[in-house]
């Protein structure tokens, strides 16, 4: 199972990966901008703010990754920690 000399799968080509980034960025922007047209029903006030979910999702993910990182400093061990 050696890698073939040229990896020509359409998903692996650099120009396509760049296109995916561009399309994704447009979609991300659209989901926020669409809120100008579609009303998001807020249950507790702030969740109806413009782009709230986008910011909240991004921020909570950053927070969770950072918490995981800090915990990892204390709790991570080598793969074979329990082996002996």
């Amino acid at each position: 199972m050696k890698p073939p000399a040229s990896d020509n799968h359409w998903l692996a080509r650099p120009e396509n990966i760049r296109r995916i980034w561009i399309v994704s960025s447009i979609i991300l922007a659209l989901t926020v901008l669409l809120q100008a047209v579609i009303k998001v029903k807020g249950y507790f006030g702030i969740d109806a703010w413009f782009g709230f979910a986008a910011g909240f999702g991004f921020a909570s993910c950053v927070a969770m990754v950072l918490v995981a990182k800090v915990l990892g400093l204390v709790l991570k061990r080598d793969d074979h920690y329990y082996d002996d």
């Binding site: 979609i27 991300l28 989901t31 809120q35 579609i38 998001v40 979910a53 986008a54 909240f56 991004f58």
Partner: peptide, 16 residues
């Protein structure tokens, strides 16, 4: 509204 809310929430987690 709900679909848009969840799309924002999830896609921006993906960005994160």
């Amino acid at each position: 509204g709900k679909v848009l809310y969840y799309l924002q929430l999830l896609l921006f987690s993906g960005l994160a």
